[in-house]
Amino acid sequence: MTAISAHSVRRSLPALSGQTGYILLLFGVTALLMPLSRFVSPSLGSWSTVSAILVISSMLVLVGFGQGLVILVGELDLSIASVIALTGVLTTAWLGESPSLVTFLEILAIAVLIGVLNGIGVTVLKVPSFIMTLGSQLIVAGIALGYTKGTVPGTTPRFLGDLMLGKVLGVPTPILLLIGIAVVGFVIQRYTVFGRRLYAVGGNRATAAIAGVHVNRMIVGAFAVSSLCAALTGMLLVGYGGGATLGMGDGYFLPSIAVVVVGGSSILGGRGNYLGTVAATIFLQTISTLIQALGISQGWQTFIYGCLIIAVVGLLKRDLATKAGRLLTRPGKS
């Protein structure tokens, strides 16, 4: 008996510390990259560059949270790019001149509705999630295009501009937002009943159902949160960029999946840590800033993104990352 329990403890412990180690590794590499990037270009590595990286990360971190929850239950949400665009368009069109709380909530409700429909398609109609969300991506993009007829009306609401470009005690507000999202997201995913049930559903649906978890409701919930996060990101982007465009979400479609996967979550669901997503977001943004400073084109940047994803899924599969993490957290014991 003791042998069995000792064995199971040993089996579960390294797995946990390995994941934590991997996240620490990502943060560490990023922290090293920032000062070292001065060798590439003297303008890099300064506080203003670091703060610019963190400001941009604040939006991807938010999309990554929603996508992460959907991936956690073993699905994928490919509709976020057009949800970002639609909410961005509605934000300038409806909120621009006369901001009101009701309109604000209406826009978020539309996004949640899209998420709920995605979830119902996946659970009740049993359409594979990438098909369902690819379909809704096309439909929502079509609605945004049809509504605007190609030109986006309205202006940026002032409060969003103030939020994304302002400072509190000398620190840009988006950085405080980033820290807030990271903490809240981590707590929701790890310590709330909702988050824990999502892990259960992602780990094994049949077991979760037997344990009394409403599997379908959880999956619908994950899609709803993902859409909500995309909508909030759309609003932040309007504030940050000073307007909305129909293509404003395109740059978030693949990176939202990339940050979750590079952050160490399993694409099959059931395993993942939101802090990994946060680390991966800042890491990838640092890399892309570096690449831009090197004068490498957008194309190579995308190419390197792809290579990173393949490298990470390949590595995680072979548990090399876990081993690397173990080396880091428990030196001399591997």
């Binding site: 996967v261 084109s297 194309g299 190579w300 190419f303 390949g314």
Partner: peptide, 22 residues
């Protein structure tokens, strides 16, 4: 390498898109 096909081909898709832009 037994990588899940969606993850692997997502990676190669992004790589190809990048190369196409190059």
């Amino acid at each position: 390498l037994n990588v899940q096909s969606i993850a692997a081909t997502l990676g190669t898709f992004i790589m190809c898109s990048g190369l196409a832009l190059v």
